[in-house]
Amino acid sequence: MRISTELLKGVLEGVVLHQIDAGINYGYEITKTLRELGFDDLAEGTVYTILVRLEKNELVNVEKHKSEKGPMKKFYQLNDAGKTRLTLFWTHWDFLINKMAELRKED
Rank of each mutant, 00 (worst) to 15 (best):
D21K: 04
I30V: 13
T33E: 11
V47D: 04
D41H: 07
E6N: 11
R85G: 02
E106H: 07
G14C: 05
M1P: 11
L37C: 07
I3P: 02
T46Q: 11
Y76R: 01
T46F: 08
F75Y: 10
L59M: 15
R85P: 08
F89H: 05
F95S: 12
K66V: 05
E102I: 04
T84P: 01
N98F: 00
I20V: 12
L96F: 09
T31H: 04
T91R: 09
E55S: 10
L88G: 01
E13S: 05
H65G: 02
L51A: 09
L8D: 02
V52L: 13
A81N: 15
H18I: 00
D94N: 11
D41I: 00
Y48H: 15
F39C: 03
G82R: 08
A81H: 08
K99S: 12
I50S: 04
T31I: 05
A101V: 09
A101H: 05
R35G: 03
T33I: 03
K73R: 14
S67Q: 03
G23C: 04
K56F: 08
Y48I: 07
L86M: 07
W93K: 09
E36T: 03
E58K: 15
K99G: 01
G70K: 04
G10T: 05
H65P: 00
L34A: 02
D40L: 11
V11E: 04
K83A: 06
D41K: 08
R53Q: 15
E58I: 10
R104A: 14
L34W: 00
L54Y: 06
E55F: 05
N57Q: 14
Y76Q: 08
K32D: 13
H18T: 07
L51C: 03
Y28E: 06
T33Q: 10
I20W: 03
I24W: 05
V15G: 01
K74A: 12
V60Q: 03
G23S: 04
L88C: 02
L34I: 06
D41L: 07
H18G: 08
E106N: 09
V47Y: 01
E6A: 14
F39A: 10
I97H: 02
M72S: 12
K32Y: 11
E58M: 12
G14P: 03
E13L: 03
L96T: 04
P71D: 07
V62W: 05
Y28K: 11
A22W: 00
S67E: 01
L103T: 08
Y28I: 14
F95D: 14
E68L: 13
G10E: 07
V11D: 01
E44A: 07
K105H: 08
Y48V: 10
L88P: 00
L37K: 12
L8Y: 01
T33R: 13
T84D: 13
K69C: 01
R104L: 12
G38S: 10
L7A: 13
K64S: 14
E68H: 01
S4D: 15
V11N: 00
K74W: 02
G70A: 07
D21W: 03
H65F: 07
K73Y: 06
D94Q: 10
E44Y: 09
E36N: 09
S4R: 11
E63L: 14
I30H: 03
E68T: 05
F39Y: 15
Y26R: 14
R2N: 15
K66Y: 06
M1E: 09
K99Y: 08
Y26I: 15
K64V: 09
